[in-house]
Design a protein around this nucleic acid. Structure first.
Lengths: 204, 204
DNA sequence: GTCTATATGGCGATAGAC
DNA sequence: GTCTATCGCCATATAGAC
């Protein structure tokens, strides 16, 4: 009975904290707001997680473990590179569409506490080296234009992430603040980003 | 005599605030740290700028006016599109190399106060519409591959800015935290980014 | 486990002497 | 103009009743 109650409350706190932290970041988030969102009071937050820092770390790990593997899995599967790229960009942009706050959140925390970030990533089963060698092999086979594989990864992530991270600025600069138009723009980029990348890396 | 002293102090404050705000952002910056950096005390900051908000706005305007025009000027000059792109990317990456905190700073403030950002940008003489029509004309002439000009602008900015904004993450993921290697990587991107973009937009 | 009330500390801002 | 001392607020964290 107690344990059921505990699980429920802990879950409510996690979900509330997840929502608030993702939107506001560690510094911008308020324990009061998380408590409100969870339908409890501040003291209970500390009862379950002791400090704001520990609560944040729990959420951060959850976010990383939930986000990164989804997109990196495709990259090591055994299908032709063009389809692989297609699938990867699809699943990546899909993830971002469902979690539009993710890019800004990660960028903030990247600068707030890089060491912690490094530890969480290392513990989440991501293996950049494998991806880099995979890309190198495709270049050796002449399937994609020769370039620094690190550039290629960086470019794909940049083209996918940046429009979400810079949304408020770009919607003003490119669409005079029209949010609806920007949403359509992001939607269409699911295809146009692929075209751009494919033109850049595949030999005609 | 008073006026000389005033100018000196005000300038020292501006420079100190510039350094601190750019690294920490509005929320992360502390008036105490700015005072230390300027070699004065907190009270004097308020004497000159009344509030932290007003001090920040002064710095923010200075940053925008100093950064944006430099890169946008090239885009409306009357030279062939390939050279124009070349020059633009050069000057852009040059600006970022000299101000590596700029991308993270702008991204933070983009989300903190979009309305203020919009006003400052509008007042800084940037004209996105002119750039968009310029790109459209080049496409009409068949000089560059046809695409949404907004995508093209977004992509160029993304490819330039993102590696600076995500530096702590990328240096871990791609170089196991080796800062020196990452610096070389950024340096080499001055050329590789251009190649990537040119392959994507120019017809062979 | 959950609540109310309160302690503790940090930071922006002000008062007032010089 | 510049300083020291202090106010007032807000946010995290804890004490203690239920």
């Amino acid at each position: 009975m107690n344990s059921i109650k505990k699980d429920n409350t802990e879950q409510k706190i996690m979900d509330a904290a997840h929502a608030v932290f993702l939107e506001k970041g560690m510094d911008g988030a308020r324990m009061q707001e998380i408590a409100n969102e969870a339908g409890i009071n501040k003291a209970l937050l500390h009862y379950y997680f002791r400090t704001k820092q520990k609560l944040f770390e729990a959420i951060f790990k959850r976010v990383i473990k939930h986000s990164f593997p989804i997109v990196s899995k495709t990259l090591l599967s055994d299908i032709p590179i063009r389809e692989k790229m297609d699938l990867f960009i699809d699943s990546y942009l899909n993830l971002l569409s469902k979690n539009p706050f993710l890019p800004a959140f990660l960028l903030k925390e990247i600068h707030r506490d890089p060491e912690f970030l490094a530890n969480v990533i290392k513990g989440s089963g991501i293996n950049p080296d494998k991806i880099l060698t995979m890309l190198g092999k495709e270049m050796d086979k002449g399937n994609i234009r020769r370039m620094n594989p690190r550039d290629l990864i960086t470019n794909i992530i940049a083209l996918s992430v940046f429009p979400f991270a810079a949304k408020p600025l770009l919607s003003i600069m490119l669409f005079n603040g029209d949010q609806k138009a920007y949403k359509i723009f992001l939607q269409e980029r699911r295809e146009t980003v692929k075209e751009f990348i494919f033109n850049a890396i595949f030999l005609k």
